[in-house]
Nucleic acid binder design. Sequence first.
DNA 1: CACTCTACCGACCGATCGGTAGACAGTCAA
DNA 2: TTGACTGTCTACCGATCGGTCGGTAGAGTG
Lengths: 205, 205
Amino acid sequence: MKSQKTTATAEKLIDIAESFFAEKGFYGTSIRDLADGIAIAKSSLLHHYPSKEKLYGAVLKKLAGEMTLEVKYIRKQFTDEKEQIFQFVQLLCNNSEKKPNRENIILRELIDNPKRAEKAKKWFFVDYFKELTGIIKSGQTKGLFKPINPEIFILQLLGAHRYLIISLPTVKQFFDEKIYQQILKDHRTELETFVNERLINEEGV
Amino acid sequence: MKSQKTTATAEKLIDIAESFFAEKGFYGTSIRDLADGIAIAKSSLLHHYPSKEKLYGAVLKKLAGEMTLEVKYIRKQFTDEKEQIFQFVQLLCNNSEKKPNRENIILRELIDNPKRAEKAKKWFFVDYFKELTGIIKSGQTKGLFKPINPEIFILQLLGAHRYLIISLPTVKQFFDEKIYQQILKDHRTELETFVNERLINEEGV
DNA sequence: CACTCTACCGACCGATCGGTAGACAGTCAA
DNA sequence: TTGACTGTCTACCGATCGGTCGGTAGAGTG
């Protein structure tokens, strides 16, 4: 079982790289700091990932894979598209509290990707995005959602959430620390309202 | 008029720094490149702004000042808070087409600010944010807006817009290039709907 | 004329960057 | 036992980083 230790080191690298890239960005993170962070030599890091870019790519790939899986799981678990999109809102909010790194990395990647894309790098979040717009498109054929543009709706929903999340540390000075949890709860409710207003409700009205 | 040439150089520095910081971020931008970009020596750059941090701060300050002024102008120009917030949506959308750098810098700053804030740096967008929430709070006392949390509303509105804008270059591969303008137009309409749903409409229902 | 101030410059600094080379210890198969 | 492979290390590389230094040209001022 020689590969066990190796795998463990590689995974530790991914983990610490995820948090460092999230906090300081690609250019702000040095592979020296990453290696020091898990107490190995820098050249040992480069043994597992032959370049900083490759390591960064591995982090993105793992992150995108996890997120896509989570959405696919929701789509398999619930047949009703309305239920799916509300479950996704819950997933978004819950993950932001459990895994705050994610939003930072995704935002940074969105900003930086256009430059990198010129170097023929693929966008890791394609499947994630297509799963989400797929919910809306599927729901629209069943007459569950209003005839909005699915891509715009998803981007606005993700944006309304992620922007607020990354703003919180900065904006927190305006809030009483005690009502911080209340903010997160109200935000969740507002997101649900946003979704709800784009549903077609056959029974009411 | 000795200061004319100096001012011109300093302004050129601010301009190129704004576009470089927006595109590559703080760590991804070197003061060498900035100096080369306007054909002066690096030491000359450091004559005008004694450090990279100071230059970055000057860019943020100018940007925040402009944006705050724009909002204040809207508030002075229109007395009705409903009109103010709709005008602000127009401002957001128009500026994203005219000055695409802005959204990048603001997003980057929001992500990075918490680290910098530890070094006792102030947040340049305080006034901007307070002007915007001020519109909502003022409108709520007049019974024009639903009793939502003003900070959450503003953050979600800004997020829905800015996230979509910075995503467009990446997501564009999914869109036919010809309908790009239609996307921007639909996005604007959706933002207006988002705002509209949070108004209290005494007449209708 | 002498003095000061501003804008600017090239040369240089120590530190840090991403990445390479080579040695060494442990493991496993032949 | 030997040889190939793996993971790790120290030592080192050229490039680039932000920033300092001493100095110069020119305009303003007395």
